[in-house]
């Protein structure tokens, strides 16, 4: 059996919970890589719009950075959804070739040999550096680019594959895994896992939020669950938490929902990311300020570069709407 098959299978020897936690951390890394790509696009855009003076080296570096980051995202995607791996790499290789072509063939200009030939006559022509940057930006995220040829389009594809893969994953379907190995918040219907706890240690049965020192979780559930305090026999949610992070997933077969957040106080790293397979739900759920992206499969929403307080407030609103 080769690696791929092994990845697809649930190993029964090792606790599936640990697998789940690591994949949760891997997914967060995946999101970080995606964010880094968006930052790169933005950087290029800023330079183009701001009439900056830069050299070809800057643009080549930018293109290289995008390829590298994209590769990291693709790799993470393959670890999360092994069955899509081959297709992802095929598309990635296409993008690599595009990048290569851009660098090799665009904007190459032989230096003028004749001395004194540096008058502003040439200001009518576009600087080759700007030409290259503009082509690169087209490739990154151009509105007029041919469908599906942009990096952004590829990113969306990868996201979709990952989300779809998650929805159909056996881990999610195999609830008994959580039943026997996790803490629970019975009145909220949430299974709870500490992302960093050594998973081979036996669980403690019913817990409360206070057992988990997780700031995002606390904010999510602050206003939630007022009236209905009956214990849910089959919790519908799994929350994997750390001190500053939270990954909340729906366990229902008919409703796919993911929320991932990091709230450390470092605006460059913090974010909230949400996916729901029903766009309508997100409209009722989200506070204003989120970017959203609709796809046939569902809706993505995210907010980046925001303060700790904004994240915490957003979580309270979302929690209130989600658990009532």
């Amino acid at each position: 059996m080769n690696i791929l098959k092994k990845l697809k299978q649930i190993r029964h020897k090792e606790p599936g919970i640990r697998e789940f936690c690591i994949q949760t951390i891997r997914f967060k890394k995946f999101l970080e890589n995606a964010r880094a790509l968006l930052d790169l696009f933005e950087d290029g855009r800023e330079k183009a719009l701001g009439e900056y003076i830069f050299d070809r080296h800057y643009v080549v570096t930018l293109i290289d950075s995008v390829i590298e980051r994209l590769g990291m995202m693709v790799y993470d995607g393959c670890v999360l959804v092994p069955e899509s791996g081959e297709k992802l790499y095929t598309t990635y290789d296409t993008h690599k070739r595009t990048a290569r072509n851009l660098i090799d063939f665009s904007g190459i200009v032989k230096k003028a040999v004749s001395p004194g030939d540096v008058t502003p006559e040439t200001s009518k022509t576009v600087d080759q550096e700007y030409q290259l940057l503009s082509e690169a930006l087209q490739w990154f995220n151009g509105k007029d680019a041919p469908l599906d040829s942009t990096v952004m389009a590829f990113m969306k594809q990868i996201f979709l594959k990952v989300i779809q893969g998650h929805g159909s994953s056996e881990v999610i379907k195999n609830r008994s895994l959580f039943e026997n190995s996790c803490g629970k918040i019975p009145d909220m219907g949430i299974y709870l896992i500490d992302l960093w706890k050594d998973q081979l240690a036996l669980p403690e049965g019913n817990s409360s939020i206070n057992d988990f020192n997780s700031i995002p979780l606390n904010h999510l559930l602050m206003d939630a669950g007022g009236k209905d305090l009956k214990a849910h026999p089959n919790p519908d949610w799994i929350a994997a938490v750390g001190e500053y992070q939270l990954s909340l997933n729906s366990l229902r077969a008919d409703f796919q929902f993911h929320l991932v957040t990091l709230a450390t106080g470092d605006a460059d790293a913090d974010f909230i990311f949400i996916f729901a397979d029903d766009a309508a739900i997100l409209d009722t759920l989200l506070p204003p300020g989120f970017h959203t992206e609709n796809t046939g499969y569902g809706q993505f929403a995210w907010n980046l570069g925001i303060s700790e307080k904004t994240i915490e407030d957003s979580l309270m609103i979302i929690g209130r709407n989600l658990f009532n």
Binding site: M1, N2, I3, L4, K6, R11, K13, G85, E86, Y89
Partner: peptide, 19 residues
């Protein structure tokens, strides 16, 4: 069941190598 690379006779796809 874990994989023991010593027992692998051959790799069937390029993708496996690539990965």
């Amino acid at each position: 069941m874990s994989i023991n690379p010593e027992n692998i006779a051959s790799y069937d796809t390029d993708y496996n190598f690539r990965f």
